[in-house]
Design a binder for these strands. Structure first.
Lengths: 225, 225
DNA sequence: ATAATATCTGACATCATGTCAGATTTCAAA
DNA sequence: TTTGAAATCTGACATGATGTCAGATATTAT
């Protein structure tokens, strides 16, 4: 009871835990944390350098010591997200063993990351619409998945595990499915239950790639890996 | 040869073909056409009332006689798109007969509309990120599909044509698949070939809903209906 | 304690927005 | 065709966000 906490609060950025903690590192982290707070509570379109810095006690112009503009800050948050997403989804791409089990694992990891960091996902995607640089960063992020998924599909096609369709358009479509279903589900309030979302994504991926016959049973034994 | 034309140029909006053509109707149409031209050639983030009106010969302030702001104009374009999309996809929702054939038809129609009107799709989605009103309009548009698809899935589940999963999360996921695959494919240059996109979407929908066994054959006999 | 350096601030120039009073154009009645 | 009321258009203004910069203040090593 005592440890109750609102379901999802932003993560925090801490400066390098070196002995010497430069002032600049601390304020940079403070600004990033203000950004996280903001993105967790308000849509990106309301973010303004003024509003952001007001919650740090620093002047508006101090912001420009650390970031070129708001989109630059968002790109930093996107980098945080990317790391976690790559870490969570690696298994299906690199792992050996039952492809369906690995795919399930990757999707579960992806859903978990987005459940925790959904607002970053949504905000960076929103922000990308108003800035060419960030849009390219986002596009490149997604493209890495398009490539990886295409490769994996083609490998499994070579093994006869997946029927012989044109892999790339399918990979692109399935990745858009993930990205925007997850943004919708976890990007902003009200936040969805993760489990039905995971089930929906898994059903689509598995029946499209490996065939619907693999869905009958398969209890959720993958929750504890 | 003489009738060759760039693969995709914006449609044009014409005033009501009444006898009396009000001046205001003509300039409203002119502004909308300027909006279409713009969205066909540049990203929405570069659209400015100045830039838009420059191409009409009217003053910047004249714009505000017809629209509250750029997002208001975009909402008008979205309405144009909605009509076409509803007209193109109706068959699977309302029609009677072979569900898979109807689904194929609806998806083909959807791909065709987006192939013609892709820039509107992309621009309105981009614009929605910076305006609450338009964001709601977009969300409502998509939600209509979520509801319709959910209903159709549940009806087919009742008939035993579709397995008994939770319909709504699936419907949401599949609609995001369509929306953002189509934005990606036709929203901006370079524009994809429609056919591989159509095939990818059809494969995902059909194998997820009705089972992958329906994909083996089925030549593209639906092209001419 | 102090000087060199790092960090921060206020003030400025720029640009897009939306409004409004008044100028200009349209159009229907005479 | 003329005319004047209504419709349409325009320039000028106030506002608010942006990014920069010179100088002020704080930090840190010695």
């Amino acid at each position: 009871m005592s440890d109750f906490k609102k379901s999802s609060s932003p993560p925090r950025v801490s400066p390098q835990p070196t002995l010497k903690v430069e002032k600049s590192e601390r304020t940079r982290a403070a600004i990033l944390n203000a950004g996280l707070e903001f993105v967790w509570s308000q849509p990106f379109r309301d973010m303004t350098v003024n509003a952001l810095m007001a919650s740090t006690g620093l002047s508006r112009s101090a912001f420009y010591q650390y970031f070129n503009d708001l989109h630059d800050l968002m790109e930093t948050l996107l980098d945080m997200l990317k790391e976690e997403v790559f870490a969570a989804t690696g298994s299906w791409f690199t792992g050996a063993g039952d492809p369906i089990a690995l795919l399930n694992e990757s999707l579960a990891g992806l859903v978990d990351v987005c459940n925790r960091l959904g607002p970053i996902l949504r905000a960076t995607n929103d922000a990308a619409a108003t800035d060419e640089r960030l849009e390219n960063a986002w596009a490149q992020f997604v493209k890495q998945f398009d490539d990886a998924v295409t490769t994996r599909i083609e490998a499994d096609q070579a093994q006869g595990l997946i029927p012989d369709f044109d892999a790339r358009p399918l990979a692109i479509a399935l990745n858009r499915l993930d990205a925007y279903t997850l943004i919708e589900a976890f990007g902003q309030h009200p936040i969805s239950q993760p489990e039905p979302v995971r089930e929906a994504l898994a059903r689509v991926w598995i029946s499209t790639l490996y065939g619907s016959e693999w869905l009958r049973d398969r209890p959720s034994d993958l929750v504890r890996n």
